[in-house]
Design a binder for these strands. Structure first.
Lengths: 225, 225
DNA sequence: TTAAAAAGATAGCAATACTATCATAAAAAA
DNA sequence: TTTTTTATGATAGTATTGCTATCTTTTTAA
């Protein structure tokens, strides 16, 4: 029996559900490849259509514009990651162990998950690192937020915040610390690989060092009473 | 006597030095206003030209494209901020006090500085918060970095890293902690105002709370031996 | 005063970000 | 099986963006 992971996506993100058709799945698959290769700015629906072997109009039947497509794939990633976290911390009692697993999941390269056939999670992880914040760093963030487009990110933040509170019930900034972990897991990785002098990991460029930094940061913050 | 602050800018960022002419200063002034108002994506040289009362071609004589103009104004901000830091921490002996001043400077709204007449620093601060990371989150980051376009950010990071080391000579991640302070000062502010459930400051929306969070984060990390 | 530099005015062009329409193929319902 | 819906393909068109080029006029500096 093959297990298929289904991430429930916000209906407002698309005009036609890409999960329901071959073309739709191709749009997701190829857009992940193209955005990872060329970056979000250089990514266009025309190039995507050519890559898939369909027409521009075909893409527009699924997504109103490339910004919503970006939000879609990033939101998919957060949903997928929350599932990974719940799966991997299941039956773990010690909240500190849970939190360490979360940090590791956030800050190390994910393996391509066979359970989701048309999404390459490791490519998607790269996109989340370099393009992720562009999903909300816009003037429409308020409207997008009203439509709940960032719910998967918020849910993840709440999950991590709760683990932090399990570790340290009196800690005052569980959510801000959660977003700090998430954002820094990605930014430190990006800096390490692209602007190494902004980090202390330039020599080895090892993800494990980012993990060590984050663990140190987080546990010294919350262990203090 | 009027003091004028001059930030030395990288020559590779522009075709013609905007500080040397009226039009150039207008380009900087109006682009800060327009980017702050409409966001970087919606900002175009055509709109900028109309706003100034010149032509598109006129802008292109100063900046090759809007991406370099963004890097320019962000780099200017980092230069200006480093000056503010050196000014405000001058004669302060206790490195912990210095570090607290740095956090406050990063995380609270700056007052428009009379010493720089064509730059509105508080608007620019808003731009750095919502558009700053777009300067380097691109596929050209490597080439831009080779041309030293991010030197002001790196210098600031080094300055803060050194203050951290003064506080705690054995701390292992001074640079990564410095970038964490810088990025989180801005992201927590953005989240507080736009996606409040990602922070613990949603109720009051007070910058002072971001400052408190960062101080807690930083000093619990470095005080531990 | 004269030449060099900067700015203004206009034109044009390829790419982007869409929208619209009509035909056809595939899938689902009758 | 036939009809009807639904999805896709093919093509066209339009406004805006992101430039480059050229020519003229104004300003500045030698």
């Amino acid at each position: 029996m093959k297990l298929q992971v289904q991430i429930k996506m916000n209906e407002g993100l698309f005009l036609r559900n890409p999960e329901h058709t071959e073309l739709g799945k191709n749009i997701i698959k190829h857009s992940i490849q193209l955005i990872a290769r060329y970056g979000f700015e250089a990514f266009t629906f025309k190039k995507l259509a050519e890559d898939i072997g369909t027409t521009e109009a075909g893409i527009y039947r699924y997504f109103e514009n490339k910004h919503l497509l970006l939000i879609y794939i990033i939101a998919w990633y957060w949903g997928w990651l929350e599932y990974q976290i719940s799966f991997q911390t299941n039956n773990v009692k010690d909240p500190a162990v849970k939190l360490k697993k979360v940090i590791k999941l956030l800050a190390t390269t994910v393996e391509d998950d066979i359970k989701t056939n048309y999404v390459d999670e490791s490519l998607l992880h790269q996109i989340v690192i370099s393009e992720g914040s562009k999903a909300y760093l816009t003037k429409q963030v308020g409207e997008d937020n009203k439509q709940q487009f960032f719910k998967p990110y918020k849910d993840l933040c709440a999950v991590i915040g709760n683990i932090i509170l399990e570790c340290s019930p009196k800690y005052k900034y569980p959510r801000s610390l959660a977003t700090t972990i998430i954002e820094m897991a990605h930014f430190q990785n990006f800096f390490m690989n692209n602007l190494p002098s902004l980090t202390d990991f330039g020599k080895n460029k090892e993800e494990t060092e980012v993990v060590a930094f984050l663990k140190d940061l987080v546990f010294s913050s919350i262990k203090k009473v």
